[in-house]
Amino acid sequence: MRLRKKNYWAITVITWVVLLIVWQLVTMYKITPEILLPSPEKVISTFISLSKNGYNGIPLWYHFLITMIRLLSAVALAIITAIPLGLISGRIKVVYSIFDSIIQFIRPIPPLAYYTLLILWVGIGETSKVVLLYLAAFAPIYLACISGVQKVNSDYVKSAESLGATSKQVFFHVIFPSALPDIFTGIRTAVGMAYTTVVAAEMVAATYGIGWMIINASKYLKSDVMFVGIIILGITGVFLDQLLKLIERKIVFWSGKS
């Protein structure tokens, strides 16, 4: 028997309620020291305090805003550059041969491995942080575009060409729309990859940002502040993913209906 959609939501809610109860019990009975795992009440009170007083003299909303600007600007740049290159690489083998091996080489390298080089090349300011996040977001979108182009039904292309469509028309009216579901999947993956890199991006020469706040708090064993930062990033990440899924449903409304 298949579960209804609302039943899945109920399971999700119950899962989180159970996790919160376990967290509360573990801290209540001091199974884990509070310095390692603060109680839910402590995390909530710390969040309220940070919202009122900020962290290190900087308002919490400003930390959050700076992190979001770094993240979203890097993802936007990745979308603008990776989608055209990925689509062209998927169609033209010469372009694919030039760029794919380079991107495949960079893709598995941990961000911290080349962050120092980025600082030497583009400076210690905001540019190096955005570039690091950009590199993390670029590959998933690029690869998703290539995958989307390769999945296009050749019958659609041949039908369009037989009706007199030019290469440009085939690209924009057949290939690009067909690849959109994969492109959105790549964008969602890219946001996740950039998110996992944001703390690393704010480790060096930063004085604000949620990632920096987490790193700075860890130096002084402020686990409650760390939890606040982690929860903020987690909730924001879920929100961004749901927003992208909503946009995908609006734009790629035909996906899954063939």
Rank of each mutant, 00 (worst) to 15 (best):
F253D: 11
A217S: 08
F239R: 04
D155K: 08
N7G: 14
I109V: 15
I141N: 09
T127I: 14
F105Q: 06
L112H: 01
S178W: 04
T185W: 05
F99W: 10
F253V: 07
V174P: 06
T81E: 10
T236P: 05
F138M: 09
I11H: 00
A160Q: 09
K151N: 14
S258C: 02
S97F: 00
P110N: 04
V22L: 14
R4L: 10
S97A: 09
F253T: 04
G54I: 07
Y156L: 15
A136L: 08
S255C: 00
G192N: 09
G209P: 05
G125R: 14
W16D: 06
Y55E: 04
P108D: 10
V94E: 09
E41P: 01
I187V: 15
F171S: 12
I232A: 07
L132C: 08
L3V: 03
R107E: 05
G209F: 09
E34R: 12
G164D: 05
I88N: 02
N7Q: 15
P110R: 07
T166M: 06
T15S: 15
C145K: 01
L117S: 11
F176D: 02
V238T: 05
K6S: 15
W9Y: 08
G54T: 07
V152R: 06
I66P: 01
K257M: 07
T116C: 00
T32I: 15
V18Q: 08
I124R: 15
F99E: 08
T67C: 05
P59K: 01
T166H: 00
G125N: 15
S154G: 02
V75G: 11
G164K: 10
T81R: 12
L25C: 14
L36S: 01
L77G: 15
L240Y: 01
E248Y: 11
I119G: 10
E202Q: 00
